[in-house]
Nucleic acid binder design. Structure first.
Lengths: 218, 218
DNA sequence: TAGATTGTTAATCGATTAACAATC
DNA sequence: TAGATTGTTAATCGATTAACAATC
């Protein structure tokens, strides 16, 4: 039940998705992945709305722009929708991640399957502390950052996840840019300066919390 | 140099901010906090734009709706703008957090100052594992969850941060709702079912990554 | 069939941007 | 003064929503 039997995508979506649509589709995907784990087979736009806080009409609208994925009176097939959204986002494949920092946060990420569920595979774990090199963390062995440039090329690493102290973040980012990494996921608080061709996403739980708090306090 | 000398806010912003505005103001605040750490005194809308990827005109527009915080030809005072935004978001005070789970992730959060920078104070660290109770993590001592309900009331806890295994998340959320917690910050992958009066924010780095990847691949 | 839920329209609302005078 | 950057307007564009026929 492949939702796209012809290679018609190039014709249908010649341009990028609007930022908002891409963000929402990613969120639907997360909920669908969890719903599947919980044994759900079908899901309605109303249920998706309960978990994402996106208006159900808008969910149907977002999806219907790309095809008719639902069944009236029934809802959407969880598997079918996962496949459809992955196709729309063109992120159906496997993507390799390098993880930097084997402290508490690095270990937490390396041991979790939060990335694996979405097709991201941690293929390397680096730490600058010689005492940590060689240590085992989950399925990984901590490596020296000296291998960095070769690893990026050899292991086709597109994304670097930074779980390092604030002071180490910018120098490391510079090395990563030079090595050809295109997306840096920054868990430190530092503001990173990189060329425009590289995307930095800084994780900021405190910002999310401020935002949630505003709507609680008002 | 208090940007709001009269208590005119009630008159000026009788309603909630639009969702987008509140989200963006939170992000400006994060950048400003970091800029201050880096010793910056003044900042322009262009610089703010470089770090937030928000259009500089929109930044000025967002801010000018609440007052004239900048100086033409100069920019914004970092300190002044931090105070102004905290005032607009009404999150100028201290807010108490309870943290659940003293595993790798819980330890990482407890030791970080990522929340402290924004006025959030971790006042309690709980773990259900008796072996961990009593252990020291940064400035905290791991407590038993039995104290939960009393702690929420006595220590005025508004936000609970969940760094627990997926299987433990929903039962814990049920307890927290009963104890009167209003905001749950969920670091597990689980979809949590809570009453409408409680806000759940599920952290999903993989979703953010999918989103970033889409714009890299296209 | 009866009930439920999608797909889609039409209308509104808010977000976004370019441009530029005001002014530090 | 000259250069820079804000505050603000006006015009456009996309997001959001209610409503309902189509149909499973």
């Amino acid at each position: 039940m492949n939702p796209v039997t012809e290679d018609a995508d190039a014709g249908r979506t010649p341009e990028r998705l609007a930022l908002g649509v891409a963000a929402r589709l990613s969120r639907y995907l997360q909920v669908l992945t969890q719903a599947k784990k919980m044994g759900k087979d079908k899901i309605s736009s109303q249920e998706l709305s309960d978990y994402t806080h996106v208006n159900p009409t808008q969910i149907r609208r977002d999806l219907s722009g790309f095809g008719k994925f639902g069944k009236r009176g029934v809802g959407y097939s969880v598997d079918g929708l996962v496949a459809a959204i992955r196709d729309i986002l063109r992120t159906a494949g496997q993507h390799n991640i390098a993880l930097f920092g084997a402290g508490n946060l690095g270990k937490a990420i390396a041991s979790s399957d939060i990335f694996a569920d979405h097709g991201f595979r941690v293929v390397a774990l680096f730490d600058s502390d010689p005492a940590k090199v060689g240590e085992s963390v989950g399925p990984h062995t901590v490596r020296e950052s000296v291998d960095l440039e070769r690893a990026v090329v050899d292991e086709e690493i597109v994304v670097a996840v930074l779980a390092v102290p604030a002071a180490a973040a910018q120098p490391l980012a510079d090395l990563l840019v030079e090595a050809g990494v295109k997306i840096i996921f920054n868990y430190s608080e530092t503001l990173l300066d990189v060329p425009p061709s590289v995307t930095v996403h800084t994780s900021s739980p405190a910002v999310d919390l401020l935002y949630a708090l505003y709507f609680y306090l008002t």
